[in-house]
Design a binder for these strands. Structure first.
Lengths: 244, 244
DNA sequence: CGTTGGTTTGATTAATGTCAACGCACGTGG
DNA sequence: CCACGTGCGTTGACATTAATCAAACCAACG
């Protein structure tokens, strides 16, 4: 069987065994990165493409006043910087939120990959889903109340982690500080804290000891108005917990 | 000489004359669309790709409470839905904001286009810029005060319109209601109005009679913290007004 | 056992939304 | 040519939401 991150790329359709083997070979020399360190900085012109195998990382931009704003989460199976083949320089940074395992894929190997039609399609798919996710984040931040906003975000992470087998019975590891969540959702740390308390009070979720528990997923989805269509997973049904 | 919208695709580098001719032929049978009508709806599975030649259109998503949220502006030279080659269904709608001239490009012709390496690269570039723009919008809405947010948005539109020759001496046609601007920037109509007044008061811009005038562009950019790097235009310098 | 990073609380202020009304410009039909 | 309707912009009063500041608390860890 293939690693869970490869299984994610099969969301669009199954990959030939050859292709899967090729992908699997990529993950041979992973390296570990401490939490809170930059994988890439704004302005960089990386030659390798980076793939997250374990942990959480984020795309972020800095505002002139020194504030950091997180614009995307990268979870196992996500590619950091496929753009660099076209664009000259990074217009944002990428930083680890927890300890991460990452592989650096040299340019020529990526070209090898994109010569395989199925893999190329899968990478296209991943890029388009990233874009769709940004659109959803935009309406989330721009149009929803703080509570629904946070709830919606937690739903998304839940579904995405499910797709790589990191959710058990509505619970997942989520070792992020409330400050980080605030930077993600455009809320101050204090307000973030109060919103989380309120969600807890309404039995929509609990977040403590770096573990997030959602007792009733459908309730949370309904509350936040979450519609997973923007993630473009065809087989949302069989994307369940993978621990037997 | 080539139409201004083609000139935009040359942002990454000049296109061969052959390619330009091919693009030019596309724009033969344009159609006109009334303001406020949908070009595509969420859930659609279009077979044609749509290209805007004149006017403003937007990508939008509806919230459960009936609110519309605009997540992107489409101006002359922008493609609406290149994604449909990979993704099954639209996860958002596209609607005209003003009267628009649009061409529908049938799938096979798009494939013809993507077989030309330079055009393919240019389309990739456009897609990646769209994504980068979404990121910038996210930090704009999530991290900036209402005034800077509006100012930043106006800067972006200015620069983008400049690239297709629609700006004259810091002024451009901008026939959008304050309600639409509110839906774009996550502000109520009333607050939008007050913010515009305040920007006018500070001599940063005036918006009246459907025309936007920016007396001092650098001042507006500085005020809003606008950095055009995310638009990835190499030749920002020569992208000036095209009326001699 | 003290330090440190993260969470929680309360009090206060600032930003933004909501509601309701009014005004102004434009186009239409009598 | 005028009366009227309609869409958009503008205003004021008020309610709500969220940011800010400052302090206390808690738990993990050397």
């Amino acid at each position: 069987m293939s690693s869970s991150w490869i299984q994610k790329l099969e969301m669009l359709g199954p990959l030939p065994d050859d292709d899967k083997r090729l992908l699997d070979e990529l993950a041979r020399r992973p390296r570990s990165i401490k939490p809170g360190s930059d994988i890439l900085r704004e302005g960089d012109t990386p030659s390798d493409v980076h793939l997250i195998l374990e942990g959480f990382a984020c795309r972020y931009k800095m505002l002139p006043d020194g504030t950091r704003h997180i614009v995307a989460y990268l979870i196992p199976g996500d590619f950091c910087d496929l753009h660099v083949f076209i664009l000259k320089a990074m217009d944002h940074g990428i930083s680890t939120l927890t300890r991460c395992t990452v592989v650096d894929i040299p340019r020529p190997r990526v070209l090898e990959l994109t010569e395989r039609p199925c893999i190329a399609r899968a990478l296209w798919w991943a890029a388009l889903v990233d874009e769709a996710t940004l659109r959803e984040w935009l309406v989330n931040i721009g149009g929803r109340s703080a509570e629904k906003r946070v709830a919606h975000f937690l739903c998304e992470i839940l579904v995405r982690l499910q797709a790589v087998g990191l959710v058990n019975d509505g619970a997942y590891e989520f070792p992020l500080t409330q400050t980080i969540l605030g930077e993600t959702l455009g809320l101050s740390t204090v307000h973030m804290n109060r919103v989380l308390q309120s969600l807890r009070m309404e039995n929509l979720m609990t977040l403590s000891h770096k573990k997030l528990v959602v007792p009733d997923i459908d309730k949370l989805k309904k509350f936040s108005g979450f519609n997973p269509n923007y993630l473009h997973m065809q087989n949302l049904n069989n994307a369940q917990s993978s621990n037997p």
